[in-house]
């Protein structure tokens, strides 16, 4: 019961967050944007043409009226029609979710698959060359802009040795470079957090007790130490989800990946308000949901944590 209440509260919070974010985007876009200028060629367009387009797009009305209409429609699941593409904004955004989810998930796999084992290794071999190397990788990952890393990976692994395609989204090979570019930054974060968590846990009494009981080292590390060290990692996982989705915006452009990030960039550049609003709503929703899932996962990682504490 307590758990269901938690879910409901989180759902309400999520809706509130989405509303705030979309409202900010709505207002900012209309203050600074000028979609009729993006739609019509500047040189042979008359003021009457602009007026006609403004009227058709519904942006000739006062801001509060536009906002009222937007909210009324949004409650019914209608986020408007794209200004530049044929179709409703939510449909257009929905078409792009799957490629972005694919890319983000692959980035997450890289981040976790690289970050956590390196963190464990570094913690267990503290002060050794392995530890030093792992920390070096972490520094490199955190200090490298993902777009630059992407371009370097294209240059060396796609152009020079032809292991992967330089761009596109056709096949598994096309996923590797964008996923690595996207995941490396987060991997560095995971590595550092896992390392510090493991070092702390390995010095605790219950680990000493486990060892005193005669458990083998593998069991001590995997069943006891790692489980505790994973709680802060799980927390950061929710935040990293947002980082990965935000990072995918640039990575999708660099690798010509046909996802939500690229759609957002194009829509922002062309002042396609409805698509931007729908995209922001979807991103906000997915990050909020990701964080909710992380909260729920605490209970499974550490059963002592109760719903009330989340």
């Amino acid at each position: 019961m307590q758990f269901i209440s938690l879910l409901l509260i989180r759902l309400i919070q999520t809706i509130f967050v989405i509303w705030v974010v979309v409202t900010i985007v709505f207002v900012v876009a209309r203050i600074f944007g000028n979609p009729e200028a993006a739609l019509l060629p500047p040189f042979d367009t008359t003021e009457a043409d602009y007026e006609k387009v403004r009227e058709r797009l519904g942006i000739d009305k006062p801001l509060y009226t536009q906002y009222g209409i937007f909210l009324k429609d949004a409650v019914q699941g209608d986020l408007g029609y794209s200004f530049i593409r044929a179709g409703s904004a939510i449909d257009i955004v929905a078409d792009k979710i799957l490629p972005t989810v694919k890319l983000t998930a692959a980035g997450l796999v890289v981040a976790i698959g690289l970050g956590i084992p390196l963190g464990i290794l570094a913690a267990l071999t503290r002060g050794s060359p392995y530890d030093w190397l792992a920390r070096l990788i972490a520094v490199f990952g955190q200090a490298t802009p993902s777009f630059w890393l992407g371009l370097m990976l294209i240059f060396f692994l796609a152009v020079r040795v032809d292991w992967f395609p330089t761009a596109g989204a056709e096949g598994f090979r096309a996923l590797v470079l964008p996923a690595v570019s996207l995941g490396l930054l987060s991997a560095a974060g995971f590595m550092r957090l896992t390392r510090s968590g493991m070092i702390d846990v390995m010095n605790t009494d219950f680990i000493r007790t486990a060892r005193a009981k005669g458990l083998n080292e593998r069991t001590v590390i995997v069943r006891h130490a790692l489980r505790h060290a994973m709680i802060p990692v799980a927390t950061i996982l929710g935040l990293e989800l947002g980082t990965l989705i935000a990072g995918s915006v640039i990575i999708e452009v660099v690798f010509s990946w046909p996802g939500l990030g690229r759609l957002m960039i194009e829509s922002i550049l062309k002042d396609d308000f409805p698509t931007v609003q729908a995209g922001v709503a979807v991103i906000a929703f997915s990050i909020a949901m990701g964080n909710l899932l992380v909260d729920i996962s605490y209970r499974f990682i550490d059963p002592r944590i109760q719903a009330a504490e989340l």
Partner: peptide
């Protein structure tokens, strides 16, 4: 093929 990033276009030429 749509490639928004100019350097990715050139890399595509270099990679054949």
């Amino acid at each position: 093929r749509l490639r928004p990033e100019p350097l990715a276009q050139i890399a595509g030429i270099e990679a054949g």
